[in-house]
Structures are given as C-alpha cells and as structure tokens.
Design a protein around this nucleic acid. Structure first.
Lengths: 262, 262
DNA sequence: CAATCGGTTCGGTGCCGGCCGAACCGACGG
DNA sequence: CCGTCGGTTCGGCCGGCACCGAACCGATTG
C-alpha cells in the first residue's frame, strides 16, 4: 500500500524470515530434529515423533519442501523425507548452539533415553555426544587435529592416520582444502568434529560396526566390539570419558561456570 | 495432559524453537539484520528500520532480550541495542545462507542502495559484499589463506603479512588456534573471511580510513584513499572485481548454474 | 519547575496459521 | 476386483500474537 520499491536485500531477508518461521514451530522443529539423525524418514514416522496427526504433519512437510529445507524420494507407497543439504544441517546446528546458551547450566539428563542421546548420537552426518567429543579430543591429544571456535585443521599426521583408518578424505578440489569443521555439541557444550572428516569418521564407524543406529532416533548404540576397538585404536574409553569439562574450554582441568560471552 | 515426563532434549529443542520463532518475524528479523551491521542502535532507529511503531518495536526488543539474542547498554536517555555474541551472528549468517539458496538465481540488485550494500557491507564484525570477497580472493591468490565450505586456514606467510598490516592476531590460547572462518556471502554467493582474521581486517580497514560506515546501515563506503591503498597493498580493484563468479565455485572461469547440493 | 523526548506499558482489535476429522488418492496384495 | 495402508487435501475451529493509540515513566534541558 505504501507503493515503495522492492529492495533487493528485502527479498533476501524475507526468505530468511520464512526459513526461521518454518523452524520456529514445535512440530516442524521436532521433525527436523528427527531428520538431523541423517536418516530419511517417512511422513508417519515424523508425525509420530512430533505427536501430531498425519494430516497436520503432511501440511508441515509440504511447507518444508517448498522452502527446500527437506527433500523427498518416493519409494513404493512410502515417501522418504530427508534434510536437503549440509547447509541446512549446519544452520540447525548453529540454532541449537545458540539455544543451548540459554539453557539452565546444570540441567543434567534424566531418563535412560536422554542418557543414550547424550552418550552418542548423530549430528546429521557426523557423531556428537560424549562419543563425538571424546573422539575429537583423542585426535587433538595426538596432534592429529586442531579445533577452535571458527574452524578446524587436520594435520598431515592426522591425514595419514585417518586414511589408514579407512576414511576417504580425497576430494576433487585443490589440495589444501580442509574439510574439518568445529561443531558445538549442545549436550557436552564443547566441540566435536564435523565436515568431511566428521562424516567420514561416522561412516567408517558404522561400516566397522563400532556403532549402530537405534530405530528412527538420532541415538547411536556403541557396540561391544566398538568399545574395545575404540579404546585400542583411538584410546577412548567412554565409561571414563569426562563429562562436561566446561563450556568452550577444552583443556581446563577444573570446571568453571563461565558463560560463552563473545 | 498426557502426563509424560519431560525429556532433556525436548528442553533443548524447545529453546531452538523459541529462537527460530523470534527470528521468524519480519519486524524482528529486520531489526536483527540492522544490528548485523555490528553497530549498537537505539530502539527508535530499529523501529524506523522495521517500519513499525515504537511500542511494537519495544515489545519485540524485550522478547529478543529475554532470549539473550541481543543485549542493551543504557546511556543517558538512550538505550543501545546490539547482538549479544558472535554465536548469534553466526547463526543469522547461516540462516541467510540457507535462505539465499531459494532466491531467484539471476535476481540482480536494482536501486543505488542495493548497489552500495552489495559493494561493501559489514557482516557483524567482518567485511562482506564484493569488497569482502575480493579481499578474501586476494589473500587466497597469494597463498596467504585457504577457504572451503567447512573452514579456513591462515598460512604462516599470511600470518606474517596480516601482522605487518597491523592486524592483532595474537590470542591467549594455544599457538595453533585458527581464527579463520569461511562465511557464505549472500550477495556474491561465494565465501568471504570471518572469524578473528575477518574481524581484524575490518577493524584495521576502518582504523586506516579505507572504509567508513554510512549512518545506521550495514553498508560501507570505500574511501578514495581506501581504493588506492586497497589496490596497492592487496591488489584489489573493486571496479574490476568480477561479480558473481558462480555459487560455491571460487575458481570457476565460466559461470555455471549449479545448485548447492550437498 | 515545566517542556521535550526516548522508551516502555496497557488495553483492545484483527488476522494468520496450527490443528484435527473426514474424505480422497494411489500403491500394494490377495 | 476389493480391502488395507501410507499419504494428501478439504473445511472449519480456535488460540496466539503482531499491531497500534493512548497513557505513563524517567532523563535531559532550559
């Protein structure tokens, strides 16, 4: 009604608003969180997780599809939904990271289900929880990798170690490409490793049978064989792995109640 | 009414929903976008930018404050609002990055205002737009830095160069900390550099008077002196700087309409 | 002190969108 | 062919929230 010209950046922010509004609904966010497990799920499974009727879920899924946040691949009479791109997963991660800042600091998990989720889970394509953080710590400990708030680096030794381990790190791009990303773990409040390195670690862990998916949830089960090998090859003992050494303070011996101020 | 126990991860996702819902409103998103300029702004300025009444703006600001997305510092009878932490800025960046994926591909800027914004602007604490991308390109060109989808690295030569340039890159942390982050530029659809390196570049550019803020907007003006020095020291000529070499394809000579599939 | 101005609080209005039940569509299986 | 099942579409209900004008609060200024 103002008759004003449409500004370009307004188009961009309008889309951002749309994306945010889509995530800003409990039902849709729950479905997206379920899809953050990295698996493709059916509409009924998603409706069940979000505790809404199938019609309602279907509407939500249509909207998420239109916004390209998720994609669908029909198979028989099923339709499998998944997160469209790592960019979307990364966005959701960062939103969880911000949301975790306002969580009550000492809110520890309660149920067995929570415990499983905090122990080991999938963060779209890489491992999170105590497992993810412990593995990252182990790599850092041996100078195979460095992580910080703004990025991560795989050392040459780390590259060799992971290649020996069976990770496929070769890329079609230039040599120096670093597919190693620090990802803030909302349960541990510390960094684990994402990017290609994280994805390859998860793929290889699954391939070797060290971890296994548990139904349609994000939680991983660490197999008995996995526990042994994990200790043997990575020096990681999850039963001993310290929990919550302090937010954003990887090497701090004693816990400090510091906030994540900028 | 179901009487079900509260699950831990539900608390986390509830917060995420709240955060997303806050951003998922045009008025609030516009205010946040304005604050992404990195400057602290008053309530009235924000109300004006969002084209809403002061009361409405005030309500929104209260909600953003409660969620810790923004902070306020009273000064006289003014109250200056700013983005609380880089983590929040990073989240907004990633949301814009996702939103940019669904934008019409060849939607070029129209007005002079758009043009200014696309030429050079602030992305919270570092430079974006053609300027930001060109500077990043220059650093990459000289092997001072590498950028990829998941991170960035500053080489030793780059570290020396930037220190000579006047950037303060020392940190209190361990030596290998890499404060170099790839940030997807929504107007150029390519990466510019964020993190400490990006912030220090912007700080130094402002300090040297190469760029200047233009009112309460995110746009930077590149000064005449800046243009000369920029070409002299960084080898960057903004008038020649290629626009839009292709989404996520930094070194591709011809444009290709590829999508950002995972 | 009164006038001005930045900012917030209050009360009331209007609309958008999340929700479900019922009906419908298409794939599979006998 | 009909029954079953996964999934979507339709119609209507309802709650929440974005919005504004008016009033109010506190700091600054003269």
């Amino acid at each position: 009604m103002t008759g004003e010209r449409l500004r370009w950046d307004m188009v961009a922010s309008a889309n951002m608003v749309e994306v945010a509004a889509l995530v800003g609904d409990t039902a849709r966010a729950t479905m997206l969180a379920a899809l953050m497990g990295g698996q493709a799920l059916t509409a009924t499974e998603l409706a069940f997780q979000a505790r809404i009727s199938r019609p309602t879920a279907s509407e939500h899924l249509v909207r998420l599809l239109n916004a390209r946040l998720i994609s669908v691949t029909p198979s028989g009479r099923f339709r499998y939904y998944r997160i469209t791109s790592p960019l979307v997963a990364q966005m959701l991660e960062s939103m969880i990271a911000v949301a975790a800042l306002e969580m009550p600091p000492r809110h520890r998990p309660r149920s067995a289900r929570d415990e499983a989720l905090c122990l080991a889970r999938s963060c779209y394509d890489h491992m999170a929880g105590r497992l993810g953080v412990a593995v990252a710590d182990a790599l850092i400990e041996r100078d195979y990798m460095h992580l910080s708030a703004d990025g991560g680096v795989l050392t040459d030794a780390g590259h060799r170690f992971l290649c020996d381990f069976g990770a496929r790190l070769e890329t079609d791009r230039r040599s120096k490409r670093i597919f190693c990303r620090a990802c803030l773990d909302w349960s541990e409040r510390r960094y684990h490793v994402g990017g290609l390195v994280g994805a390859e670690l998860q793929r290889r862990f699954l391939e070797l049978g060290w971890i296994a998916r548990t139904g349609a949830t994000r939680a991983f089960k660490v197999t008995d064989a996995g526990k042994i090998e994990l200790k043997d090859i990575f020096g990681v003992d999850l039963d001993v792995a310290s929990t919550n050494r302090g937010l954003l303070a990887p090497r701090q011996p004693e816990e400090s109640s510091q906030r994540a101020a900028g």
